[in-house]
Amino acid sequence: MAPEPIISVRNLVNRFGRQVVHEGLDLDVMPGEVLGIVGGSGSGKSVLVHTMLGLRRPTSGEVLFEGKEISQLSEPELRAVKRRYGVTFQHGALFSALTVAANVQMPMREYLDLPNDVLDQIAMLRIRMVGLQPDAVVKLPSQLSGGMIKRAALARALALDPTLLFLDEPTAGLDPISAAAFDELVNYLRKSLKLTIVMVTHDLDTIFATCDRVAVLVDRKIIVDTLAGIVQNPHPWIREYFHGPRARAARQEN
């Protein structure tokens, strides 16, 4: 029996006024995979992720989380679903008034009733997991470098041991060394924690280093295939994307 998808998007339509972003889009996220979502600027990657997270109500179509329609869920059920996924946003979206430790503890405070010393200890675990130095816990987000912010955001996303992780542009704005380290971290966490990861990225190196399957948003639809398959796809935009000068370099490396 084929495994059930964690998230399926069925016949999704998203429209802003007269502008159609998605038109009858289908997508399945299978457990344990790393799915990369790519697409040109303005092709609706973020809109798609926001819809999958239930942060945005689609114009029509449905999003199923483990077979259950997200928009039909009651408040407690939705909370239970939200507990199962962790999200990092493109710019980190760390709460600027809170220290890194408090940022990481925030979801745990929301969902669990734990004493402070336990929270501190678990926050330290998350911070070590993502490879931040222990002295980072007392820092404010503004005192962190770009790479550290990404890691701290990942630590917060991992706070509740999610099964599903959404990463929005996890390596954007990082130097190649930090980006490679982040790729390695993602691979490592995925292997050790058996996470399912949905990743929006433009970074070809990241795609080749981490993704099992790639979903390309073109012409308001989505084309999903394995990494090897998508490279062979005849669609002109995809060809351009994976066979442009930058892609060649990235493929050679991996």
Binding site: M108, L112, D113, L114, P115, D117, V118, Q121, I122, L160, D161
Partner: peptide, 8 residues
């Protein structure tokens, strides 16, 4: 994790 308080 849900049991963390008891564990501690």
């Amino acid at each position: 994790l849900d049991n963390a308080a008891a564990i501690a």
